[in-house]
Each structure stands twice: as structure tokens, then as C-alpha cells.
Write a protein that binds this DNA or RNA. Structure first.
Length: 477
RNA sequence: GGCGACGUGGCCAAGAGGUUAAGGCGGGGGUCUGCAAAACCCCUAUUCACCGGUUCGAAUCCGGUCGUCGCCUCCA
């Protein structure tokens, strides 16, 4: 039985999906800038949750939106002198590229706010009819006072929130916390026709409309960063439940902790951020995933080069274990299933990825030890690969041919006067060098043999002399 | 002002009344090796911010103190 911490109840609950298919909705990005590590963290976490649910036999309908129209997109597009649609399109493409690199599985559908205008208008109209919304000069606001449940997700009430000093008073609104459902467009802004004149959707309503359209009145899981709890998700609940009359709108609310940079939250608005592409220049996708999953999803994590770098070495360990040779004559004795069970136990408890990761490392050690003791490790390797895959770690990805420039390769060929074409691939060149070195070692010319080894080391190729010969692998220079 | 989270070894990070206080990285020692590399083995927190309390028993529960962070405004 999977147990999930539900933000709504503030406790762990047994996970019992409503129907045969788990209906999962995760708030996507507003595409006006590149993704940063905080986004990566959130989407890695929800991707892992989705993968785990599938691993446990559920079918998951996973919807993730793009809020491709809002103030920031318009501002940004105007600055660049391009249409809002074009700006959004560019960042959406970038988003897909980024997520593919991180091994984040694609959602079932990626609806966009601008393509769901009819559904949004339908909802706004319905809310007005039911007395939950009102129009003022082409703007439509949600009437928070009409919803007695308002505040139930974030654990606040209207009075407490009014006591906060940062709410702007707007005379057009009946209540300072009433929020915009539909916004009259200013000249030059993108706009769509509506019963209240030309305008565009406000923030929040698009998620309600899209989740209703693609998943129905009740979702099993709705996810996002903790910064979305209020007002975004609070408002979504208000709109959706008031419109459909069906409660709950969401059965399990899942929120991930936020990424810190130094002492503060990483955020686009403060400019305090490490972009994902920056991080990917220095660290592998596996290391970033392992880093995120090494702490619990509800805890905040702080960016540090030291942590990421140590994850890189951890990944190498797992990768090596999964690539350990299988010996045919091996004896039985390694029980991989118990590791699988431990993994499930960890993940069942509110997606305990830190413990799950620990199981992976334990299993890796068991495989290495089994290899040393000449045991059957094939099954264990399969389990390690399988479990790593549930966490989205791609342990085969690291086996790529090293990226060595043709100049560097030519230099090697020249230096050692190798009998090979200058356009040869990396592998045959290394093979020749290993042959050369093997002879040197037979002649006990350790010095020359070591020169070859260090030359290759500089290119990021590590040699390992084993009893039955030398193997090479791509490692850090 | 209101709401919430957190403080565990050199670093990262689990654990939520009785466990030898996971795991990773780093460090030390050893096995293997011509030397390395990798792997394996051993060691590296008598103690969980601090002070009280509850309990036979607390890192875990309660109260207080200090410190850090998040939300209440756009945010994953």
C-alpha cells in the first residue's frame, strides 16, 4: 500500500485511486524564460512519482500544462519585439529539450492555456451564473467570500490573510482577495473574444479548465512546488469545486520543497538561479537526478557544487556495478529480490527516495562482492537496472564513446606512430595503444607503459589492468 | 503581524518513542596490483542546535531559547 502525504490533510494517507487509471496533473511552466534547477527538481520528483506508480502497476494519465499567456510573457515578448505566441513557443521547445536530457518522461497531454479558451470561458460563465464570480468593466473576479471552504489547502482564513500587510486594495474588487478569472486586454495585447469583451484568461483558471477537460471533475493527484499552494492551488480548488459542485477537486495534493541557492529560494523573479543548461554543462543528468532524489521531496535542498560533484561519483559507482561482467561458471547465492522489496518498502512510504537510493547502493555493493566471490550476478544486475530506471537514472547512458577531438586523436597517432588511418575512431586507436602497452608491460618497461596510461588519462580515458587484460573506460580527466 | 518547515558525523542526507543512528561523498588503514585504477574489507556520531519536562526508556513526544528557511505578492 502506497502512502502519500497530502497537503490538504497535512498527513500521510493510504493511496487509493478513484478509478482504474491514476489521474495526475502537475503544474507546468509559464514559458517566458529558460528552466532553472528548481524546475528540474520539481519535474524530476513528479516524474519519479509517476514512474513509481507505473512500476507498481497503475496506469497513469499524466497531464501537464503550459500557461502560455500571462503578463510576463507579454512584457518579455514586447521587449524582444516578437509576438507572445512566438516567445512562448521558443521556451516550450526548450523545455522539452531540457526534460528529455533529464530523462523526464513525456506527459500524456500538454494542454496550453491559449488553446483552451472556450473551456475557460465556459467555466467563468458558469461561475458567474452560480454567484461565485462577477464582472467589472470587462474584468471578471472570483468572489472568495462565496466559498466557505476558501483557505482549506493553505490553512488560512480570510481574516488572517487580510492582516498581512501586502495585499493591495483594488476598488474594483468586492474583497481584496478576489482574484482575476478573466482580464480585459489592453491595446496591443493578445486577446480573445468573450461575453465580457476582448480579453484573456487570468492566472489559475487555466489549470482548472484543463484538468476538468482532460481528467474530469476529480483528480487523484495534483502536484507542484510548495510555492504554488497559495494562491494558485487554493484558487484552483475554489474555482473547480464551486463550478462543478463536486468535492474534492483533488484527492491527493503533493507539493515538493523548494530549491535554495545559498540562503534563499531559487526563483526567476529574484534572478537568484542556476539555469538548467548551466548545470548540465557541469554535471550529468544522472547526477542531477540522484542529487534531487537523495533528499526527500518535501524538504528543501540547497545548491552546492560540492554536493553535485559527489553525486557524479556516486553515479559512477552504480554504473560500474550494472556493467560488471557476468561469469558463466558462477555459483548461485545472491538474493536480489530482497533489495527489490526494500526498495518498494521505501518508496511506498511517501516516496522515500533517499532510502530507495540507499538500497541501490547496497545492491551495487552486493553485486561487486558477488562478482569477487564468483557468484551469479546477472539477476541482481537486472534488478539494479530496473530499480534505477524507476528513479529515472539511466545507468547505460554513461557508456558512450568518449568525446575526443580529432586533433587529440591525431596527436596520439603521431606520437606513437600508429599504423592506422588518421580519420579512425577512438576505439580502434585505443585498442592499438593497449596492444602497444601490453607489449611494454610484458617487457617490464613500466615507465613507457605508464606514459601511455597517463596520456590517455588526460583525454578522460581511464585504464584498468585486470588479470585477463586491460580494459578502458571513460572517466573524468 | 499570521501560517508552516527545518537544525543529525568533515560535507550531503535518512531515521519520528526501545534498532549496532541508513546511504552517498570525503578521510585513514588493509586486500589485490609492477605501480595505478576499480572493487572488496575494517575504521571515521556513546550522540542527534541548546535548556528544561513527560516516560522504565527521547534524535524521535511536550514547553522554552537560539539559529535558518518558506508562504501570506509573480514563482516549480
Amino acid at each position: 500500500m502506497i502512502r502519500i502525504y497530502n497537503t490538504l490533510s497535512a498527513q500521510k494517507e493510504d493511496f487509493l485511486p478513484h478509478g482504474d487509471t491514476v489521474k495526475m496533473y502537475v503544474c507546468g511552466v509559464t514559458p517566458y524564460a529558460s528552466c532553472h534547477l528548481g524546475h528540474a527538481m520539481s519535474y524530476i520528483i513528479f516524474d519519479t512519482i509517476r514512474r513509481y506508480l507505473e512500476f507498481r502497476g497503475y496506469t497513469v494519465e499524466y497531464i501537464q500544462n503550459f500557461t502560455d499567456i500571462d503578463d510576463k510573457i507579454i512584457t518579455q515578448a514586447n521587449e524582444q519585439g516578437i509576438p507572445a505566441k512566438e516567445l512562448a513557443e521558443g521556451f516550450i521547445n526548450q523545455y522539452f529539450t531540457d526534460m528529455d536530457v533529464l530523462n523526464v518522461k513525456r506527459a500524456s497531454v500538454y494542454p496550453r492555456a491559449t488553446e483552451e479558451i472556450p473551456k475557460i470561458i465556459e467555466m467563468v460563465e458558469g461561475l458567474i451564473q452560480k454567484g461565485h464570480a462577477y464582472e467589472v468593466n470587462g474584468d471578471v473576479y472570483f468572489r472568495v467570500a462565496s466559498d466557505p471552504d476558501y483557505g482549506k489547502l493553505s490553512g488560512r482564513n480570510l481574516e488572517d490573510m487580510l492582516a498581512g500587510a501586502r495585499i493591495e486594495v483594488d476598488d474594483a474588487k468586492e474583497h481584496p482577495l478576489d482574484f482575476t478569472l478573466w482580464k480585459a486586454s489592453k491595446p496591443g495585447e493578445p486577446h480573445w473574444p468573450s461575453p465580457w469583451g476582448e480579453g484573456r484568461p487570468g492566472w489559475h483558471i487555466e489549470c482548472s479548465a484543463m484538468s476538468l477537460k482532460y481528467l474530469g471533475e476529480t483528480l487523484d493527484i495534483h502536484g507542484g512546488g510548495q510555492d504554488l499552494i497559495f494562491p494558485h492551488h487554493e484558487n484552483e480548488i475554489a474555482q473547480s469545486e464551486c463550478y462543478t459542485g463536486v468535492k474534492p477537486f483533488v484527492r491527493y495534493w503533493i507539493h515538493n520543497g523548494l530549491m535554495q541557492l545559498g540562503e534563499d529560494k531559487m526563483s526567476k523573479s529574484t534572478g537568484m538561479l542556476i539555469s538548467l543548461s548551466q548545470a548540465l554543462e557541469k554535471y550529468s543528468a544522472n547526477a542531477i537526478r540522484l542529487w534531487v532524489l537523495s533528499s526527500h521531496y518535501r524538504s528543501p535542498i540547497s545548491y552546492s557544487d560540492e554536493s553535485l560533484a559527489s553525486m557524479e561519483r556516486g553515479v559512477e559507482r552504480l554504473v560500474r556495478a550494472v556493467h560488471t561482467d557476468i561469469v558463466e561458471s558462477a555459483i548461485p547465492g545472491l538474493d536480489a529480490q530482497s533489495y527489490r522489496e526494500q526498495f518498494i518498502e521505501a518508496m511506498d512510504d511517501d516516496f522515500g527516495t533517499p532510502q530507495a537510493v540507499a538500497v541501490l547502493f547496497d545492491l551495487a555493493r552486493e553485486i561487486n562482492r558477488g562478482y569477487d566471490e564468483n557468484m551469479h550476478i546477472g539477476e541482481a544486475k537486472k534488478v539494479l537496472w530496473e530499480l534505477a530506471d524507476v528513479l529515472g537514472l539511466n545507468l547505460y547512458a554513461e557508456l558512450k564513446t568518449p568525446d575526443i577531438s580529432s586533433q587529440a586523436l591525431k596527436a596520439l597517432i603521431d606520437k606513437y606512430i600508429l599504423d592506422i588511418e588518421e580519420t579512425a575512431d577512438v576505439a580502434p586507436v585505443i585498442a592499438l595503444l593497449l596492444e602497444r602497452r601490453a607489449q611494454l608491460r610484458r617487457d617490464k618497461d613500466w615507465q613507457q607503459a605508464d606514459v601511455i596510461r597517463s596520456d590517455l588519462k588526460e583525454l578522460g580515458i581511464t585504464l584498468e589492468d585486470k588479470p585477463d587484460g586491460t580494459v578502458w573506460r571513460y572517466g573524468k580527466p
